[in-house]
Design a binder for these strands. Structure first.
Lengths: 333, 333
DNA sequence: CTGTTAGCGCGTTCAC
DNA sequence: GTGAACGCGCTAACAG
């Protein structure tokens, strides 16, 4: 392997100078730098990340923790993160964790901790106090794309507002028999993304005096959305509108409606949340949350902190926007 | 930071013994190992990956290179890889590269090379001789999920056969006016996945004596598939069946057909390739290639080589299977 | 089975 | 602006 001393010899300087010239930290005359770079290039030298990291404490790598890799939202956010980070020369170390608490502990306390990373980004992890503390102990900037968490720097979509916006859209069209597809009663108690969207739904309805709107729990997949919608549409008092807490569920709902011979939006209006690329093909009205942009912003936030900026603890508010397509309309008279 | 000597002191042994006890390499008495592990646990010690990697040459990390993160096939394969690797204690370093040759060079020659990884998995990279050589020079096991490449260990789907299978299905149903949505003429010359699928299409038709089947180039997205299908279905001699080289394009084709008021499969049969989870919702007949399984197999192959197995150069053949759903049927009389 | 010792390859003081 | 020397934290011989 060609090492730093090979380059030093070839350039007729010391290893210290090579290090300075190549890393850009510390003073080196332009001429020397040039000679070093030429020598390094012609020898095909690249620093050893391990050695560099050990000696400097920096790693040029950012850890990213996701709960799922094969769901649209997460892979899209990840793509945004990658874009933002790669341009600045950072590598990504990927950690995929499930919901199992012990597995999560193991990933955080072993894998993440032993690998030197300069910063960490988590997506939709909803870390409790213990996990947050464990993360902070890593001693690196952390950006969590998740609900507000005073213990971490969070990039947050106001999902309560998202839920209200979607519901308000339905109400404004004149719907009063509305059902929700999303968090079940148990999780609704917490402040996870699904819980907040559901609560936004309930609050918006309450303000309008609409009571007893049913909620059909589902797991955020097309399949789950379809099954939940099927139940909703079979109800005695069939709802005239459905608010699904994700686009994948909303698409499932559209498919379920079609299977029942119901027309969207004539017989039932459907709105989702996400801005899934598939949405436009279904004419799905949705609240777009710009997933890719979230990843890019997380990357930018992390880079800013690495540049010495103060951690913007809990300040990052992410945009969202109602996108009206054809799946919602006033209820049939 | 708590280091190995803290543990050594706490356990009353040398650092070498701690290293041996914790890594499991080298002889340690059960009693000593136990004491070391307790000490490590109570101190919250974890090895420094950088130091360990520097000293041992191993990194407990595998690099994964993908061309896209936010397309179903790639994120699904990645999920499979992650599953397979994480269970064995390996971390994943993720590299996302575009098609730009210079960018690819930079990623491979700088990022991948400087970071110590124990192995590399590439997905759909179709590396030319130069890139393959550059990869081999890394000196670690490499598994490429891609077309056969004598320079690398490849896990290959026989895409020529896939193309033939899909086309044969259409022919067996009695279709003779068939069109393909996939590789354009320029790329069809090569031996990329799209090119092979297209050639399989052409060969199967030729054998059946069907000539001049049109090909409509598209970019493997729903949108591209939809646009290509729209052109195909507007043709003078409208095809009775469409073979799209990916499920996303096939879904686009179904949507395009619907928009034109054509019924699938009554007016036009459509078949895809992939096994995209969405397929079942569209009743899409397809050739499933078990994306997640591909990732798992790549992980297993890499782990086997790391365990000392011989690189199975170019032997890995991946399964595929015709999945008949409702989007194909005999042509209308 | 265990301890001692010498690096792994580089970044960083500190003098010059 | 540049070089010498030390040490980052750990593992791999080698002795014992």
């Amino acid at each position: 392997m060609v090492g730093i001393d090979d380059v030093a010899r070839a350039a007729g300087v010391s290893t210290a100078t090579v290090s300075r010239a190549l890393s850009g930290r510390g003073p080196v005359s332009a001429a020397t730098r040039e000679r070093v770079m030429v020598a390094a290039e012609s020898l095909g030298y690249v620093v050893s990340a391990a050695a560099s990291s050990l000696a400097s404490g920096r790693a040029r790598a950012v850890g990213v923790v996701v709960p799922f890799l094969d769901r649209w939202f997460f892979s899209t956010v990840l793509a945004g993160i990658s874009d933002g980070l790669v341009r600045h020369g950072y590598d990504i170390t990927l950690y995929s964790v499930g919901v199992d608490r012990d597995e999560r502990r193991r990933v955080f306390d072993d894998h993440v901790r032993r690998r030197r990373i300069d910063a960490l980004i988590t997506i939709a992890l909803e870390s409790d106090a213990e996990e947050s503390a464990s993360l902070r102990r890593l001693g690196v900037p952390i950006v969590a794309i998740a609900g507000p968490n005073p213990l971490l720097t969070t990039l947050t979509v106001d999902d309560l507002a998202v839920g209200r916006l979607a519901t308000a859209h339905l109400l404004a069209l004149g719907h009063r028999r509305v059902a929700h597809i999303g968090a079940d009663a148990a999780t609704a108690a917490g402040s996870t993304v699904p819980a907040l969207r559901r609560r936004g739904f309930e609050e918006a309805l309450a303000e309008e005096g609409v009571a007893d709107a049913p909620v059909y729990p589902a797991d955020f997949t097309i399949e789950g959305g379809s099954a939940a919608a099927a139940r909703a549409l079979d109800a005695e008092q069939r709802p005239t509108a459905l608010f699904a807490a994700s686009d994948e569920m909303a698409i499932g709902a559209i498919l379920a409606a079609r299977e029942k011979g119901l027309r969207v939006p004539d017989d039932v209006s459907i709105i989702g949340v996400d801005g899934h690329e598939l949405g436009r093909w279904f004419g799905l009205t949705t609240v777009d949350q710009f997933a890719r942009g979230q990843g890019e912003r997380a990357a930018a936030a992390v880079l800013a902190e690495l540049d010495g900026a103060e951690p913007a603890r809990g300040l990052g508010t992410l945009p969202f926007e109602l996108v009206e397509r054809g799946s919602t309309a006033p209820p049939a008279a």
